[in-house]
Design a binder for these strands. Structure first.
Ligand SMILES: [Mn+2]
Ligand SMILES: [Mn+2]
Ligand SMILES: [Zn+2]
Ligand SMILES: [Zn+2]
Lengths: 160, 160
DNA sequence: ATATTATTGAAAATGATTATCAATAAGGAA
DNA sequence: TTCCTTATTGATAATCATTTTCAATAATAT
């Protein structure tokens, strides 16, 4: 269980989440979570499949999709669309957590920058907005995304 | 030319954008833009196709897709993914514009709420963040999205 | 009006995601 | 442990939004 193995051990957070929801803790699910925890961000379902395959070669792509769907539903994983036709996934690690970040997306080459500069102020405003929106619309807000679109340094340079 | 026909007339803003980019002003393009301007938001490509079809029955779905892609590239239209497997489109009308808004998305039933409450503060922060990010990462930011995900009033009620 | 070439639309292809379904394995009970 | 129930898996086939192809058409410049 290398690195910050996400709530590791049989009593860990996600294990409890699973048991509480009546979901079984299976090898594919454990390994998918492990891969998500150990990898860089923004993995596609296939990226994940390939990495899991190294560890557990009987894995099926279908199971990866199904597990990701479950993890998203449980709030453990965030699903993104960066506009390249395939969904991307990354561990949530909670909304107030250190690793929370937002995205800068180049609409020309697809480059993604994760940033967490100025994120404190953002999160503060978002917290406030969130409360007001919950009050006004009766929504129970669980997560958010903030993405900026534009041209990255390189693409800007190329276009004169 | 009903309603706020978006920069109407042959000297309008988008016509100039088209000419400037070397793009031709064709019937399909005009009507697609008209439909986007006159309709509610969050239309799928097929929604748009169906509406254009009423006015211009020789339209092809392919053309709708291609035109939307162009309009997105030109910054006239925003493309969203609300997680239901099809892209949604709406006119941009500029970043600082009155109609600028953000989204509240129910992850259970798919309901979307457009809101522009508290948007002034949001936009102010976003403007600031944007400037800093442009400086730090050399990105030329053209647009942004802020979306909140959670359970709408109804879905929250159903789940006890 | 003519030439050039961007644009269109029908049809076929693509490719990510989902549905099916028989086989398997988690977790609870005994 | 062993047995039972049923959630889960993985191979396969199906779906379906979006793209590609390509010959025909129409928008602009001269
Ligand atoms: Mn990220
Ligand atoms: Mn909207
Ligand atoms: Zn780029
Ligand atoms: Zn709902």
């Amino acid at each position: 269980m290398p690195r910050g193995w996400y709530g590791g051990g049989p009593g860990g957070w996600w294990q409890r989440q699973f048991r509480g929801g009546g979901y079984r803790i299976t090898m594919p699910r454990q390994i998918i979570l492990q891969v998500l925890d150990e990898s860089k961000r923004h993995l596609s379902a296939e990226d994940i499949y390939l990495k899991v395959y190294q560890i557990y070669p009987t894995i099926g792509l279908t199971t990866v999709y199904r597990t990701l769907e479950l993890l998203v539903r449980m709030g453990l994983v965030f699903k993104f669309d960066f506009g390249d036709g395939r969904a991307r996934y990354e561990l949530t690690r909670g909304d107030g957590n250190l690793s929370h970040h937002h995205h800068l997306i180049c609409t020309n080459c697809g480059r993604i920058i994760d940033y967490d500069d100025f994120i404190e102020e953002e999160l503060e405003l978002i917290k406030k907005t969130r409360q007001e929106l919950e009050k006004k619309y009766g929504f129970e807000i669980r997560n958010h995304t903030l993405q900026f679109y534009g041209l990255c340094k390189k693409c800007k340079a190329i276009k004169e």
